[in-house]
Write a protein that binds this DNA or RNA. Structure first.
Lengths: 123, 123
DNA sequence: ACTACAATATCATTAAACGATATTGTCTAA
DNA sequence: TTAGACAATATCGTTTAATGATATTGTAGT
């Protein structure tokens, strides 16, 4: 079990934390949330789900709030919320970097060269 | 070597492909690009770098354009460009999903309940 | 030729994803 | 009361990725 917060969530982990933004829920509800939120793009199997839930509980990103029979309900912790917000920011930085890079190339005329498959100035 | 395109790039892979948007370059230049573009946030060691370059060449995302001594220069292929654009879109969808979810919660009054740590309606 | 450096390559360990399958608890109907 | 059926969670085993550390190799300067 890691001491430091996970510094790079996977897409699956990200959506699991997003689910708990809706409030406490059990594993199955998380899967349903993800399927709905991503319009079916992401379908998480039980192995991935419970692996992540286990890790998140160790990591103190979520905590158990009730057990009814087999059904375990979790809620997100403040630590989990921080991790989620940081992940949103990381994703935004990636997109921003991509955008900045595209813009830079446009202004340097690089896009023309790329389109034509040229390695050097076409002049 | 996988037959289908990689459907989910890691952050490291993403920035490597972004680097090749600048044109052909060698491994070291990729590392320098990433350090610069992310303002030092991401520092890639040789193991990660050459693992990724090897995989991308197999995957036909990049191709060798010259070898001078030890120095190998690669350029991105059209397949690589497609993978890169798809990855940008995936990241954008993640951010968009997070935003949509936040908006939905604001309008349902969920944010108030979350802030106060309540599981049920506070009324 | 020797040395230093630049660039790439490999090793070994740890962690993540996930299909497949197993387990367990609850409820219903006869 | 017990035999399904079902809902929910748990585990196994394989494959893939990340990465620190270290090794290799080619080139140039002296």
């Amino acid at each position: 079990m890691p001491k430091k917060p996970l510094e790079n969530l996977t897409e699956s982990m990200f959506y699991v934390l997003m689910a708990f933004g809706r409030g406490p829920m059990c594993g199955i509800q998380v899967v349903e949330f993800i399927e709905e939120r991503t319009a079916g793009r992401i379908q998480m199997g039980p192995a991935t789900l419970y692996t992540i839930l286990g890790k998140f509980e160790q990591e103190n990103y979520i905590e158990e709030v009730s057990v009814e029979g087999r059904k375990r309900t979790y809620q997100i912790t403040s630590r989990g919320m921080i991790a989620y917000r940081e992940e949103v920011e990381r994703l935004q930085r990636c997109v921003a970097d991509a955008t900045a890079e595209m813009t830079a190339r446009l202004y340097s005329g690089e896009s023309l060269r790329q389109e034509r498959g040229l390695q050097v100035c076409p002049c």
